[in-house]
Design a binder for these strands. Structure first.
Length: 226
DNA sequence: CGCCAGGGCCATA
DNA sequence: TATGGCCATGGC
């Protein structure tokens, strides 16, 4: 790998360029908050195409259904998403927690978001990233989501994020306006961009961040990747 | 066939 | 605090 980028870029500028390139993403890709929360668990370290199969197999996303369905049946439905033993248990944990708010996201949104977040983090199977996805896309509270794509993209823009999740998140939130709509769109754009241009194996086709990015040099030609 | 995907938990030092 | 092993399927 060879660092040959032309100039530095602000975090807000990254957002602007991605938005310009890809437009609004209208995340989370789900028809209900319940489906969003289920999807957030199932997508942990898993390709979304696998999650889609699971979402289709599930009879319902309603909290009561998830709570009451037989464990074996739940596992059968979500099998294609991998890690199904852990994820089945996590979904049960999550929906049991949701009952505390009468299975009503509108009620949960009126509560102190710091308490909601710490409650989510107490659930086995839900870590910082999954919790913050729910904070943004279900609770509509501004927590910048740090995922593998974010780290990879920022690193290739010469903005390496601290390996510690909370420190990485604090860095972003100190250098970008704290706004749930922006965090919502930004994360979706980073995933969109990451899948297209910033896989582990470099791809490089008309990258909208090209001139701010490191360049990858193969044997003959040097190729912009990100 | 091996690598990877929109992580998280747990044991270990 | 911070690594490493493990969980598991499907696409390429």
């Amino acid at each position: 790998m060879l660092g040959i980028k032309e100039e530095n870029i602000s975090i807000h500028k990254i957002y602007e360029l991605l938005y310009e390139a890809y437009g609004p993403q209208n995340w989370w890709p789900a028809d209900s908050v319940e489906e969003m929360m289920v999807g957030a668990v199932l997508v942990q370290n898993t390709a979304w195409t696998n999650v889609e199969k699971s979402l289709e197999a599930l009879e319902s996303f309603s909290p009561s259904y998830i709570r009451n369905v037989e464990h074996e049946e739940l596992i059968r439905c979500i099998r294609t998403s991998g890690f199904y033993m852990q994820k089945a248990r996590t979904l049960k944990n999550l929906m049991s927690w949701f009952q505390k708010y009468n299975d009503d996201i509108l009620i949960a949104r009126t509560k102190d978001e710091r308490i909601i977040r710490s409650e989510l983090l107490e659930l086995k199977g839900i870590g910082y990233e999954t919790a913050d996805c729910m904070m943004v896309y279900a609770l509509e509270k501004p927590y910048f989501i740090i995922d593998a794509y974010t780290r990879r993209i920022f690193e290739r823009l010469n903005i390496p994020l601290h390996y510690n999740y909370l420190k990485a998140q604090a860095y972003i939130q100190d250098n970008l306006e704290v706004d749930v709509q922006i965090f919502n769109e930004f994360h979706a754009l980073l995933v969109k961009h990451g899948k297209k241009h910033c896989m582990k194996k470099p791809r490089c086709i008309s990258c909208p961040l090209g001139k701010y990015c490191y360049y990858y040099q193969s044997q003959e030609e040097s190729i912009a990747f990100i």
